[in-house]
């Protein structure tokens, strides 16, 4: 089943494959992002309750969704790296983690900015924001552990184990934080919860979601290429690539 992956276990093959994907990914990412954001920020109707401030969802929601998705992708890479000892997967852990951390940070930051007009405060211990904050800690842990090792193979394996431990914990953390939030909910009302959304607002959001997905993939692709080149510097093909 995994046999087809094996050619890509070699650095050079994966490098070339990613190189073929990259222009397409980048092009379509830029295009969909532009369409989605311009539509969302300028042409979608304002919200009857929140006015224009709701428009931050066009960044906040995709970032929040893919911050979780990227963590799962990193954990899958970790599983492949640890079980089948495929080196490209080891490098993928290192390539994915910072992208996910940045997404999480964007989600947190836009959440806080949105909180200001909504709650009158930059930080509210809202369940979603809190669990994003913890997710950021998990990402930072993986990145810190990877960089703590001087040997990058050992670092990638250690970070992979941590990512797997984290992915088992993410649902538990998520559930516990929501439960904690309802327990301590006093006066705050979660304004993130919207029962339904007008189609005119939803379509640009869906385009933004697709744009973020493509952009995330493009960034990971580029970072993975860099990582492969950096790790294979002692090989002849990498030297030729650089000259």
């Amino acid at each position: 089943m995994w046999r087809w992956l094996h050619p890509y276990a070699k650095g050079e093959a994966s490098y070339r494959l990613l190189g073929r994907w990259l222009p397409w990914l980048t092009g379509s990412a830029v295009l969909t992002m532009m369409v989605g954001l311009i539509w969302g920020l300028f042409y979608a109707p304002p919200d009857y309750q929140q006015g224009d401030s709701y428009r931050i969802i066009y960044i906040h929601v995709p970032a929040a969704i893919f911050s979780m998705g990227t963590y799962t992708a990193m954990a899958i890479a970790a599983l492949i790296a640890l079980v089948w000892q495929i080196r490209t997967a080891e490098w993928a852990i290192a390539a994915i983690a910072p992208v996910g951390a940045v997404l999480t940070f964007i989600a947190l930051f836009t959440g806080a900015v949105w909180g200001k007009p909504m709650w009158g405060t930059w930080w509210e211990w809202d369940a979603r924001l809190t669990s994003q904050l913890i997710l950021l800690f998990l990402y930072l842990g993986v990145i810190a552990l990877y960089h703590a090792f001087s040997d990058s193979r050992t670092g990638a394996k250690a970070a992979g184990i941590l990512a797997l431990v984290g992915v088992v914990n993410v649902p538990i953390i998520h559930y516990s934080v929501y439960w904690w939030n309802t327990l301590h909910q006093g006066a705050t009302i979660t304004k993130f919860e919207k029962p339904s959304m007008a189609t005119s607002m939803l379509i640009p959001l869906l385009i933004c979601l697709l744009g973020f997905a493509l952009m995330t993939a493009a960034f990971i692709c580029q970072r993975l290429r860099n990582e492969i080149l950096r790790q294979e510097l002692h090989r002849d093909w990498a030297q030729q690539e650089l000259n």
């Binding site: 913890i134 800690f137 998990l138 930072l140 842990g141 810190a144 552990l145 703590a148 941590l162 431990v165 984290g166 914990n169 538990i172 953390i173 559930y175 516990s176 934080v177 439960w179 904690w180």
Partner: peptide, 16 residues
Amino acid sequence: LLSLLLLPLFIPLLIF
């Protein structure tokens, strides 16, 4: 580093 790795994992335990 160890604190950074472990404290987020302790959170559900602390909450419950």
